[in-house]
Amino acid sequence: MADDLRLVDVESKHVDDVYRVRSRSFGLLGAGDREEWLSNMQGFIDDRRIVGVVDGDELIASARIWDFEQWWGGRKVRMAGIAGVVVAPEYRGRGVGSKLMRGVLARSVEQGYPLSGLYPATTVIYRHLGYEFAGGRFRYTFPAAELRSLGGKEVSVRRAGPDDAKRFLEIVGQLHAEARISGPLVWPEAKVAEWLGEENSFCYLADDGFVVYGWEGGKLRVEELVAGSEATARALWSVVGSGSSISTDVEAYMSPDDPAHLLVDKEADKQPTIEHWMLRVLDAPAAIAARGFAPGASLEVDLELDDSELAGNSGRWHLSVSDGVGSLTPSNGTGETLRLGSRGLTALYAGTPLATVRRAGLAWGGAAADDGAIETAFAGATSYMLDYF
């Protein structure tokens, strides 16, 4: 039977099989959700962004590739977001998932993605294929009354809607670049406009910031709040906190480094909800060239990369960083240098301190004198996402 297992492009004829396997993995969808799922499926099929495994003529596993951009060091990098990874129950534990994901990696490289990201149901298979933790989706809970008292009444704030999608993206682009943010996804204007028009989305816009929030399970929940100044941050959080007479708490998806943690008198709940996500460098030179780096960092060092899954990343490379940009070019250098596997490279790319990467056994060799400069180049705020996919 193993000889009959092969990778395929998922086609329209496979959709019923995909849904059957998906239902056994995640449960049945409601009628409305199934319609949306079917609509999305066709786009993945048309763009060859859904890969499957078949046994004979029967599809037994599949995974989708979302076409994303993601902020890294204040610059946008293309990222293949892997989702809907499903394997029929009777085929689990037989290597089908690994075969599927190797096909997904190959397809992502073929389509030119420097990075791949996912939320893991289990880390073992993904670590074996070179993925590593890169950040989290953090949800904090604040007392609503604390937010209401933050002030900011001098800032003009108005209701926003679908026509403001372009301005929302402009504000995000400016502020994320200035703060060298890493992790959040970049969405197309049409999708942002759709969200701003949803009935349960309460959207407010200031000159240098905005907030999107709504009701979730009897609580107010902030999906995104960005502000370019203290006054605007206070004003927007106060708008959310104005619902304190109904909701005693406000949940918020945000970075651990968000200024709100410094503005409120009482800290957020001591047990935030964290969903960790993983990253994988697919094309090392392209990923380095697209990423932003610390503006004051200056670095010239060789690296030896060993990628057992993607041979194009392996070999000796010269890493150069200057004026906030980097490059990775083939090197003819000799001698001992820093060595990294695919997980180590990904962890470093995501801002994990090199000392931590070394202590985890994911980096070795090289001159200790170079470590500080390498850490400085990749350092920045904590990587985070606001969206689950």
Results as ranks from 00 to 15, higher is better:
D4K: 04
L5R: 15
V8Q: 14
K13L: 07
H14V: 13
S23T: 15
S25P: 14
F26R: 11
G32M: 06
F44H: 06
R49V: 08
I50Y: 06
I50E: 04
V51S: 04
V51M: 04
V53Y: 09
L59N: 05
I60Q: 13
A61P: 11
A63F: 10
A63S: 15
A63D: 14
A63P: 14
R64K: 07
R64G: 06
D67M: 00
Q70K: 07
W71G: 04
W72G: 04
G74V: 02
R78V: 08
M79H: 04
M79T: 06
A80T: 14
G81W: 12
V85G: 12
V85N: 13
E90R: 01
R92H: 13
G93C: 13
G103T: 02
V104I: 15
Y113G: 10
Y113S: 11
P114W: 13
S116M: 15
Y119D: 11
A121D: 13
T122G: 15
Y126T: 10
G130Y: 06
Y131D: 12
E132L: 09
R148A: 09
S149A: 11
L150V: 05
V155Y: 02
P162V: 02
A165M: 00
V172N: 09
G173R: 01
H176N: 09
I181L: 03
K191N: 12
W195Y: 09
E199R: 09
S201D: 11
Y204V: 11
A206W: 10
V211P: 08
E216T: 05
G217R: 13
K219P: 00
R221W: 02
E224V: 01
A227F: 06
G228M: 12
E230L: 11
R234L: 11
R234C: 02
L236Y: 00
W237S: 03
Y253C: 11
S255D: 10
D257N: 09
H261N: 14
L262S: 08
K266T: 10
E267C: 00
A268P: 07
P272K: 10
I274V: 15
E275T: 11
H276Y: 15
W277V: 09
M278D: 12
L279N: 10
V281C: 12
V281P: 08
L282W: 14
D283Q: 15
D283H: 12
A284L: 13
A289D: 11
G292C: 03
G296S: 08
L299M: 08
V301L: 07
D302E: 03
L303C: 06
S308A: 01
E309Y: 02
G315E: 05
S322Q: 15
L328W: 06
E336S: 15
E336K: 09
L338P: 14
L340F: 13
R343L: 08
R343H: 10
G344Q: 12
T346Y: 00
A347C: 02
T352Y: 08
L354Y: 01
T356K: 05
R358F: 05
R359I: 00
L362A: 03
A367S: 04
D370Q: 06
A373S: 05
I374M: 05
T376M: 02
A381D: 13
A381Q: 14
T382A: 05
Y388R: 09
